[in-house]
Amino acid sequence: MAVRAEAAVADRAPAEETVRRRATVARRLLRHRLFVVGALLFACVLTVALFADLLIAVDPNRISIRNKFKPPGSEWLLGTDNFGRSLWSRVAKGAQLSLAIGFGVVLLNAFFGTLIGLLAGYFRVLDDILMRIMDAFMAFPVILLAIGIAAALGPGSVNAVIALAVVYTPRTARIVRASVLVVREQAYVEAARAMGAGHARILFRHVLPNCLAPLIVQLTFIFAYAVLSEAVLSFLGLGAEPPTPSWGNMIAEGRQYIREAPWITLVPGFALAITVLGLNLLGDGLRDVLDPRLKVQQ
């Protein structure tokens, strides 16, 4: 009886430890002023994206020539475009698309980047070949390679997600690999091996959890880049196809009316800037708290 109770106490101890550590991280994040600002900015965009259908009164694709080129004001919150479509409705729907694409890129990137990074860092035979391939992908300027892949696959949001996931995966793989190289030499990994743990168990139970901090920081920045790059792709006609509103194609469409109706371009650009700024601040804050080695000195 007593032995079992002792075991239960011993089991609970690490769990309590984890909870306490998480609470400390959360407290430090909340004290990081820029992180809080970033979180608020991103929360605004996320709220608009999640509740877009409730927040808009007019269909984003409803054309009303009578109302074209209305400036932002009390009647039309953010104004209307050359077809008299509500810019508020279009920006809100665009937020949905941008964030969905960002999430898609982050998910694919997290999966493949982690897998490649783990394999390259843990199995030395695979390291050279995998990392040389990653180097070659990184020799291309990110957006140019994404443009090339998206141009080959054809326009569309899914293709944009694939193109962006491909170009950002090598960067994540490299970061995961670098952490694995450090973690695999730790005593607890050796202990696990000595106790007969298999490669899979070591990799996923011991190595991966200890590589998560830099990975989370990296994925936050990838989210920001993905949102920005998707806008570039759809600006060039490689993302979502009109009339589906995306911030990039709205900026492209507004371009020719920039003299008489600059708000058509300014509004989606502003939404894009807020999102990317918010994510960058979140990333900076997470890096300072989770991965202090990389901290930009205060």
Partner: peptide, 22 residues
């Protein structure tokens, strides 16, 4: 500097055109 890394450059280009060009 933070604004610099967050503003989309093609959007800034259009803003600059409106201000300094138009």
């Amino acid at each position: 500097a933070l604004l610099g890394v967050s503003l989309p450059n093609f959007w800034l280009a259009l803003v600059l055109i409106v201000i300094f060009g138009v």
